[in-house]
Design a protein around this nucleic acid. Sequence first.
RNA 1: GCCGAUGUAGCGUAGUGGUAGCGCAAUCCCUUGGUAAGGGAUAGGUCGUGAGUUCGAUUCUCACCAUCGGCACCA
Length: 641
Amino acid sequence: MTVTVTLPDGKALTFPHGVTGSDIAAAIGPGLAKAALILEVDGKEWDLFRPLEGDAHIRIITRKDEKSLELIRHDAAHLLAMAVQDLYPGTQVTIGPAIDDGFYYDFARAEPFTPDDLPKIEARMHEIVKEARPTRREVWPRDKAVQHFKDIGESFKAELIASIPSNEDVFIYWHGDWHDLCRGPHFRTTAEIGDAFKLTKIAGAYWRGDAKNAQLQRIYGTAWRDKKELDAYLTRLEEAEKRDHRKLGREMDLFHMQEEAVGQVFWHPNGHTLWRTLENYIRRRVGEAGYNEIKTPLLFDRKLWEQSGHWDTFHQNMFIAEVEDENRTLAVKPMNCPGHIQIFKQGTKSYRELPLRLAEFGSCHRYEPSGALHGIMRVRGFVQDDAHIFCTNDQITDETKSFCELLLRAYRDLGFESVKVKLSTRPEKRIGSDAVWDLAEGSLEKATRAAGLDFTFNPGEGAFYGPKIEFTLTDAIGREWQCGTLQVDFNMPERLGANYIGEDGNKHAPVMLHRAIVGSMERFIGVLIEHYAGKFPLWLAPVQAAVATVVSDADPYAREVVAALKAAGIRTVLDTGNQTVNYKVRQHSLAKTPYLLVLGRREAENRTVTVRKLGVEKQESLALDAAISMLSTEAVPPDLR
RNA sequence: GCCGAUGUAGCGUAGUGGUAGCGCAAUCCCUUGGUAAGGGAUAGGUCGUGAGUUCGAUUCUCACCAUCGGCACCA
């Protein structure tokens, strides 16, 4: 009996029965024999030491292959578990997958791991790599595995295996005398993991991702193909830290937060300028798209929230307001939809008025769990660029299409090109009948397709009143942020008694589309700060130009220049400080001011300015008028160009 | 909310069982300079809050608050 394997280049090789990936690699060449990590057999990953089961198309994966990253990380997770169980006997293993940039492993242990433990564990991992423990794969009946892991005190592992159907076999991987349940594949020895890994942090995590379960201790690590990649990753982390919105928010004097107003933002003049610039941009875009801007109250009688269904689902996350003299409970609005419905309900609405688009920069408050708060990205008081479109069934597709265009246009204007779309369907806890959900999900899917968007499904993640699409943008360093959303709601208008008179003269409940482009203003500004690392395009920059003098003789001219720039609408600061030019250049560069205009005697005499653009060392002398017109042109918001 | 860590002047940090230094920023003085830190002086802290141990606590212990890293949550 022989086995014939076909290589990616079409070459076929024949081997005796029982041949392994290692044998094949060795037959091809000694270099490959060493470099081989894993085999791909008819597209499936296969241990190099595992005999082939028949003829197949194969591919040998080496370190050069991008795919090896995930394999290295999976092996590194096992390596971490080995090291931990070596050093801390009695610690139970649970699961440990590869993730983006690395891996983690969840352990059950009574004492917490401390930051000091990480270097020790890491050192032990390096020792185990040097030991080159050989890997072995065994196939066990499920029940034997359950019993075995129970016997050795690995109750989490036993529980995991017990959830596998009893007629299935399970795979046990051995690295030396350490073993674990695993789907595989794994490298031939622990040596092949290499040394380009590092443990990064310790965290708590719930068993099986459920807060009702026991909390485990998770150790995170990162792993790469070589030291160079590892260093590049660590540098990337440092870069991300430098653009942290909390750090830049302080340095650029944009905002601050304090204990007396947890989860809420104090916007300083610079930050609020950024806010208004963004708000006005959206206001213009939304206005030209046929929305009417409104403003609704912050406090509503609790009865309204009971009627909408929010009280039932979210009352624990709502801020309650009560006054001594009045016997009623008010709640600070956690969202704007019920308020918008009240405006829709004023007067009798005709089908001729649909679609009716009501937009609001709506201030909302939610009592977010303390652990969820994160700078201005996740706060308790926030403003949504919210709008609700009241329309008929037939109008859903067109409205969805034009919203998607509006949103993508806005993201491009704000500097984001790459957008991912997810469609979330009915959650477990929801209102409305299944028939209505079928209709809502069906129309949203159809409309999303009609908008020409590529999307993936996110089952069970919809809002309690309807399915939604979520827009996730990618920032300058590849991180993803969910911002925009569009939700189809067949429930809320009816619950709150909204209707219109149809062509047939009868009352109908409108469909309501909830939608937001940036989502939360706070969060989006945080994303903008990190995306641009504080170096905003001119139209967004809070301070657009700094005028700095070289000598005090130039002060009167500098004041004149500042007045002219301000008159042209350029946000300008004046710096006549008693400092050297070098110092001023440094200060305004660190403040990330887009343009620095340096003025000395020369400029005062010739009525010119010497312009230095942020990040560019070259300077340019321009006539004052020319400079102002250049800056004004560049400062025009993208929608007004 | 859960697990872990952290909290010293506006910011960044050092340090100690005997009530605190440094750098930047600030203020003042000298310096008027040409593209990433000119020089000098001065001022600024109840060491997150509260309790306990102690002759004495910023330092040790406990509780609380906030922040950070995760998990869970996210209308």
